[in-house]
Amino acid sequence: MSDAARRLGEAMSAPTPTGAGTVSGEVVDVTDQGVNVLLGGALILDVPCLASYRARARGDWVVVRPGARPVVLGRTAPDPGPIDEDAIRTVATEVALDAQVVRAATWGTAAPAGTGWQTVTALFMRKNSAGKIELYGQVTAETDPSPGAPGTPAPKAVTLTPSVIASYRGGSRDESRTEAYQGDWTGRGNLRGGLFYGMSIAAACAGKTVASMKVSLSRVPGAGVNARRPVQLYLHAYTSPPSGQLGLGDGPEPVLSLSAGASGTATLPASWQVALAAGTARGLAVYADGSTNYMALTGGKLTITFSA
């Protein structure tokens, strides 16, 4: 709990003429501990939330119980039932397809096409490339048309994390920093940070069609101003931290803005996805000039989804 949050909470906890027990505020960012909330013009960091406040997002208007330790009680929103139902059905279908033993059951008068089938009297079976069992029943006459075999599902999403995060200043690595820094707070020179994934991104994409790549980053509290600032993202071509300067590729792309302690996820530009999938780019970097957008970042989880 920040000192600002404590002071504001104490002030707001004083009895009011109306006896109001809650106030409203706007969520500026989501953090690992709760949310950063704008209350009465003041940015309050890491306000804890009740577990019932789910799917937290920037821009939510929330109900806050003031006090020495403010707590977010929840937000006003439409009934989530109809919204959740579609998402639950989608997840349930994916789980069922993953868990089932038999992927497809079809039949016909001719022998099945393809390789790998094993005949048991008039029943054929095989295991496909995804490890799922397929059955084919050969019949003398079709009294009921065979159902079609389900289509091949898209490859599962892949989540990758950086093997190393490092920062550079003055043309060499700053060994004292284990987060990715951008900008300059002390006048000693601009910092640039790198997230290194080896060749794991290209390996994960080999033979597949990328639908999207999203990166999740968290801003470390205590580095720079508390207000939201843009993460200035670049590509780089290194599999591991270089000993000299970290060269920057395409960028900057201000795809994400974070306040102190906040976490966020951004979709990488389409051209970056192509470069990373092909291995011509191999990781991500951050860089800024001066103190305006100075910050430290950690995380770097990269989630890749595929269409085929």
Score class of each variant (00 low, 15 high):
Met1Asn: 08
Met1Gly: 13
Ser2Asp: 15
Arg7Pro: 01
Leu8His: 09
Gly9Lys: 04
Glu10Ala: 12
Met12Phe: 10
Ala14His: 10
Thr18Lys: 08
Gly21Glu: 05
Ser24Tyr: 05
Ser24Arg: 14
Val30Ile: 13
Gly34Pro: 08
Val37Phe: 06
Leu43Pro: 13
Leu45Gly: 12
Ala51Ser: 15
Gly59Ala: 01
Val63Phe: 06
Pro66Phe: 00
Pro66Asp: 00
Gly67Met: 03
Ala68Trp: 01
Arg69Pro: 06
Pro70Phe: 00
Val71Trp: 05
Thr76Asn: 12
Ala77Gln: 14
Pro78Phe: 00
Asp84Gln: 13
Ile88Pro: 03
Glu94Asp: 14
Asp98Trp: 10
Ala99Trp: 02
Arg103Trp: 09
Gly108Ala: 02
Thr109Leu: 05
Ala113Met: 07
Ala122Val: 04
Ala130Leu: 13
Gly131Thr: 02
Tyr136Asp: 04
Tyr136Ile: 03
Gly137Asp: 04
Gly137Ala: 01
Gly137Arg: 01
Gly151Phe: 01
Gly151Cys: 03
Ala157Cys: 03
Ala157Glu: 08
Thr159Glu: 15
Leu160Ile: 11
Thr161Gln: 12
Arg177His: 02
Thr178Pro: 03
Thr186His: 12
Gly187Lys: 03
Gly193Ala: 01
Ile201Trp: 14
Val210Met: 07
Ala223Arg: 15
Gly224Trp: 02
Val231Cys: 11
Ala237Phe: 06
Gln245Ile: 04
Leu248Thr: 06
Val255Glu: 03
Leu256Ala: 04
Ser257Ile: 02
Ala266Ile: 02
Leu268Cys: 10
Ser271Gln: 13
Ala275Pro: 07
Ala275Gly: 04
Ala277Asn: 08
Ala285Phe: 02
Val286Arg: 07
Val286Leu: 04
Tyr294Glu: 02
Tyr294Pro: 07
Ala296His: 08
Leu297Arg: 09
Thr303Leu: 07
Ala308Lys: 10
